[in-house]
Amino acid sequence: MARTVQATVNGRKYYEENVEPRLLLVHFLRDRLGLTGTHVGCDSTNCGACTVMFNGKAVKSCTLLAVRADGAEITTIEGVADEDQLHPLQEGFWEKHGLQCGYCTPGMIMSALQLLERHPDPDEATVRQELEGNLCRCTGYQNIVEAVLWAAERLKSAGA
C-alpha cells in the first residue's frame, strides 16, 4: 500500500504521495525529491556514499525505507552549506585535496559532521576510526583525515 511521506529535508517541507513501502530512502531523496548529491555505491550499507543526517544521526540511506522518513528531519549534502557559505568540512575537503572523483565525498562529509559533533577535537586515530563506515577508492584516506582535522581546527577557533 502506497503511503504519503511528509518530511523536512534541508529545512524545507516536502509532501510526497504514493510512496511505495519498499522504496529506499536514498531513492526517495534522489528520484522523488531530486536531491542527487546523495549517492549509491554498494547497496549493502558498506560504503557510506548514501550517508545523510536523519533526525540528527548519520545514517546510510540505502538500507532505510522512505516511509520511515514520515515526520523526520533530514539533512543531505545539499543542506550542509549555510546559503553560499561553505561548511568548514566542505572547505577542508577542498583545501586539503580530500577528494578526487568526488563520488564518496557527500557521504564522507555527512559522516564527518557527526564525527565532529561527537569529537570536537579529534586526533588522527579517532578520525580514521569514525570514518571506517565510509569507503573511498581514490585518496587512500590520508587527505580526508587531513581535511577533517582542518575543519575541526577551524570550528574550534570559530567557537573560541
Binding site: 548529491g37 543531505t76 545539499e78 583545501e95 585535496h97 577528494l99 568526488g102 565525498t105 557527500p106 562529509i109
Partner: peptide
Amino acid sequence: KRREDLKYVTGSGTYVDD
C-alpha cells in the same frame, strides 16, 4: 586548489545516475 571541487563538496556533481 582544484577547480572542480566546489560542485563535489556541495553535492552538485552530475554522475550518470543523476
